[in-house]
C-alpha cells in the first residue's frame, strides 16, 4: 500500500497507487491526495496497481474527483485495474469520471 508520486512538470503530477484502496488505507491515501491537490493543476492517477478497492476507496476517488472539479484541476484516472473496473461497472460510474477505461486483453470479461 503506497502511492508513488512523480512530479511531471510544473504543477503536474503522476500518482501510481500500489496495493489496496480500502478503509485500512483510506486515511493515508487521502493525505497524499490532498497534498497533491494543493500543489498541482494537473493530476494523473494510475490505478493499474490497485489490487482491491472497497467502498472507502471508491469514496476517496469520488472525493478527489469533486475536489479537482472545484479547484479546476485537470484530473485523469488511467490504467484502471480489474477490481476498479468491476466497481465502476457495478455502480455505472465510468462516465462520471469521464476517463477512458482500457480493458486489457488478459481480463476475463464476464
Amino acid at each position: 500500500m503506497s502511492i508513488e508520486i512523480k512530479q511531471l512538470k510544473n504543477a503536474a503530477a503522476h500518482l501510481a497507487i500500489n496495493g489496496e484502496m480500502t478503509i485500512y488505507t483510506a486515511l493515508d491515501q487521502k493525505t497524499t491526495f490532498s497534498e497533491c491537490l494543493e500543489n498541482n493543476k494537473e493530476l494523473q492517477i494510475d490505478l493499474s496497481g490497485v489490487s482491491e478497492i472497497d467502498s472507502a476507496g471508491l469514496q476517496l476517488l469520488l472525493f478527489v474527483k469533486r475536489e479537482a472539479n472545484e479547484r479546476h484541476i485537470k484530473l485523469s484516472l488511467i490504467h484502471h485495474s480489474q477490481p476498479v473496473v468491476e466497481v465502476f461497472e457495478l455502480l455505472n460510474l465510468g462516465n462520471h469520471f469521464g476517463d477512458p477505461i482500457v480493458l486489457s486483453a488478459n481480463w476475463k470479461k464476464t
Binding site: 483510506a26 486515511l27 476517496l60 472525493f63 475536489e67 455502480l91 460510474l93
Partner: peptide, 16 residues
Amino acid sequence: LTFFPDMPKDAEMDPE
C-alpha cells in the same frame, strides 16, 4: 445513482 451530498470539503472529509 451514487451521490454524496454531505461529503465535507477537503480537510473536513474523513475517509473512514
